[in-house]
Amino acid sequence: MSRVNDVGGQTGFGPVVVEEDEPVFHADWEARVYALNIALVRRGVYTLDEFRDAIERMPPQAYLAASYYERWLHAIEVLTAERGDAERGGDE
């Protein structure tokens, strides 16, 4: 079944908006989220596939309302919380 992120060919998203001279990150927190994700994958806390999955299983309304790096933040929060739950549950 297709998830909310599978938008190829859909209509209704409006024109493509291009920001002139766009910075790599729009706020310091975006840079921190970017770095956290890479560091956590490198450490093996979760995999890139798990990270993508955590974004793609966001409820559609939350996904569409979130900015790009807010989705990343959500995924990191979910995956690191799930990890903590698993440890407390004695799975490791």
Binding site: N5, V7, G8, Q10, F13, V16, V17
Partner: peptide
């Protein structure tokens, strides 16, 4: 990248916001 934001970052740097937008990916 219709599903998310896959992009050759090593060769192009981080992608611009429009590349990651639903509008570009869908259309």
């Amino acid at each position: 990248c219709t599903l998310c934001s896959c992009y050759p970052v090593a060769l192009l740097g981080p992608s611009p916001s429009w590349y990651k937008s639903e509008a570009y990916r869908s259309r």
